[in-house]
Design a protein around this nucleic acid. Structure first.
Length: 345
DNA sequence: AAGCCGGGGAT
DNA sequence: ATCCCAGGCTT
């Protein structure tokens, strides 16, 4: 009796799986947190954040009771900050409606903020062992190769591959199986696949045809280049920072006042203009701190940082603060601002 | 369906 | 320098 796809995959996983923090638990709360952190984020980036998070917020109730700013600081540097706001909202709902438990019902889960098709399936299978499919970037790439489906790896191929995934799911060992699927994509069936080591190559049509390197087709990215200036406004040992508000990019994070360079404007000229806009007309000295590169999504930002010594800082309010360097780490800042702040130490 | 939303590792 | 990552939300 030849071994099935899932038998082969599970046997390989048992021998080759990485030792990752969230594989030491079946606590649905912790599995959920790991799944949100891992969205569009590499395992190595997540590990330290996950460890710290579980120490700070070991339970659903401790998370629901935490403050928004505190959570933003815990997330600082991980990116996609709407994730942490959705985690907080969902935790409050789960405390209110589900006694602080993660529901094991797909219809209830999908209604919670931050739970899409992937995360619902991941929590249900990995934490509860339910027979639910998941399609992440790994699974999508693997199944496209298994069936030699050409094209880009986007969600539009999911309808084609889902039937095969569903009929291939094993009875039992679902927590292991779905993780094994993703692990295969991370370790073997990666961008440049290691087909010789693949435990399921006998099921792979792309391997048969020798086209595994052409699937999936790379998606073309177009960058938007932006040049900005940031004013580090200082009086004595106090610095002036502001919070990005509302919606849009990096919303809720703190930063130094900044502005995009106007057409033909020099960075120093922009810094002086920015100081006028901040009503800082008493600037006694302005010196360049350096150039910081800040890349996010499809933006490539060159951020010119200027240190501006003033005789009096602008007034404080809800979204503007005067802080000393030691206090600054209590305010969640985006990576561009953090890189500038590091120049002040 | 397509665009938005971060940051850093891998190549 | 480019591509991508245990996706979800909005339009």
């Amino acid at each position: 009796m030849p071994k099935t796809f899932s038998e082969k995959l599970l046997a390989w996983y048992k021998l080759n799986k990485r030792d990752l923090p969230w594989r030491h638990t079946r606590d649905p709360y912790k599995i959920w947190i790991s799944e949100i952190m891992l969205q569009q984020t590499t395992v190595t980036a997540v590990i330290p954040y996950f460890e710290r998070w579980i120490k700070c917020y070991p339970t659903m109730k401790s998370l629901a009771a935490a403050g928004e700013q505190e959570l933003m600081s815990s997330w600082e540097g991980l990116g996609y900050y709407s994730r942490v706001r959705n985690i907080h909202k969902a935790a409050k709902i789960m405390v209110r409606d589900f006694e602080g438990n993660v529901p094991d019902d797909p219809k209830a889960l999908i209604k919670l903020p931050g739970f899409g098709p992937y995360t619902v399936g991941a929590v249900l299978s990995i934490a509860y062992g339910l027979r639910e499919p998941i399609i992440d970037a790994n699974v999508r790439r693997i199944v496209m190769r298994l069936h030699a489906i050409k094209g880009k790896a986007d969600a539009s191929v999911d309808v084609k591959i889902l039937p095969w995934i569903e009929k291939t799911l094993p009875r039992g060992q679902m927590s292991e199986f779905n993780q094994a699927f993703m692990e295969l994509g991370a370790l073997i069936c990666s961008r440049q696949p290691q087909c010789l080591q693949c435990p399921v190559k006998e099921f792979c049509r792309a391997h048969d045809k020798g086209v595994q390197d052409e699937i999936p087709e790379p998606k073309k990215v177009s960058y938007i280049d932006v040049e900005m200036v940031a004013a580090v406004i200082r009086h004595g040992d106090k610095y002036y920072i502001q919070q990005r508000s509302g919606k849009g990019v990096l919303s809720g994070l703190w930063e130094f006042p900044s502005s995009e360079l106007l057409k033909g404007e020099s960075s120093l000229g922009a810094a002086k203009r920015l100081m006028e806009e901040q009503r800082c007309d008493d600037c006694s000295r302005i010196t360049k701190l350096g150039l910081v590169r800040h890349y996010y999504t499809n933006h490539r930002v060159k951020l010119h940082a200027y240190l501006c010594d003033v005789n009096s800082l602008p007034e404080e309010d809800l979204i503007h603060r005067q802080v000393i360097l030691a206090q600054m780490k209590e305010f969640a800042m985006h990576s561009g601002a953090v890189k500038i702040a590091e120049k002040l130490g």
